[in-house]
Simulated scan of single mutants.
Amino acid sequence: MSAELSRRAGHYAAAVAERLLEADLPVTGIQSCGPWRDTDGEYLDVEAAISFTQAFQNQHGGGDCGLHWAATSGWCLYTTGKEDRYLSGVRWPRASLLPEPRLVAAFVDAFRLDPAGAGTSEQPSYRQEGQDFPMLLDSLAPYLPAQPYLFEEPQIRFADLHRRAYENRVHRALLSRASDPLTHLHLRQGELTALLHLLEYTESTNPTALTRLLAADLSARAGRPPEAAETHKGALQEANHRRQTP
């Protein structure tokens, strides 16, 4: 039962992460675990977590910052101080044990606008630790994937959601800026080379035409006049083609 509780909690975290990704939040991963005991023998219940990029964490104290779900108290968003790494703030969204993913996303948005005013600092209690595991299994069942044969494990499901979310962001960014004025960004040659290496790595781990063409576009216009931005625009054309393809 412990493994199945962990799996279902992970799928619930993946469902929440999907809504966060749809809101363009910089989610990097999910975790989950079933009932377990720590090194001191203290009993701990089912848990899940969602992590964010370092840039997101820097905006909220500079230390660790993420979402944590406990099967006794629901979701919370925690922050730690940059220097001591101790918890400097925990906010609970005043929701149920298993709030809908959209409500969790709305809570994160509220936190970003007003960290001290979002939710409450008082930890709620919705369920007694170590009790009613069969009921918890049933409560988590609606968040299991619609295609279990493809996404049996939560991490595989999240990886697919993560990939598709960022592909969509790149498409939108290229298409929305087709007629935007050119910006002036001065890069050292080494910085441009580093960026191209990162795009090459991305292509090797997630081979798409868009990644390859974007790298080719940037390489082709390096050291060229501003008109090169119009001459070399294969990535934009590919994004536009994908938008028009049913």
Rank of each mutant, 00 (worst) to 15 (best):
L136N: 00
N168V: 06
L198V: 14
L140I: 00
R157E: 10
F158Y: 09
A216T: 08
L195M: 11
H197F: 06
R172K: 12
L196V: 03
L199G: 03
N206C: 12
S125G: 10
M135E: 15
A215V: 09
M135W: 07
L199N: 02
L196P: 01
H162W: 14
P142Y: 07
A178N: 08
A222W: 13
Y201H: 10
L144A: 09
R221F: 01
P145H: 02
E203H: 15
G119N: 09
Y149M: 05
E167H: 12
E152A: 12
L161A: 02
M135V: 15
S179I: 07
D217T: 08
E129W: 00
G119C: 04
I156N: 06
L192D: 01
L187P: 08
Q123P: 00
A165K: 08
L187K: 08
L175N: 04
S179W: 04
L210N: 06
H171E: 11
A216E: 15
Q147K: 09
S139D: 13
R127E: 03
E122T: 15
R188F: 05
S219I: 01
D217R: 06
D217H: 03
L144Q: 10
D217G: 06
R157P: 00
E152H: 09
R212F: 11
R163C: 12
L136W: 00
F151I: 01
R164S: 12
L185D: 08
Q131L: 14
R163I: 06
I156G: 01
R169M: 13
L214I: 06
F151S: 05
A194N: 10
T193F: 07
A222D: 11
L175Q: 14
Y149E: 15
L214F: 11
L140K: 01
L182H: 04
L150I: 01
E152V: 02
P148C: 04
T120W: 00
L214A: 09
S219P: 00
H197R: 10
E200S: 15
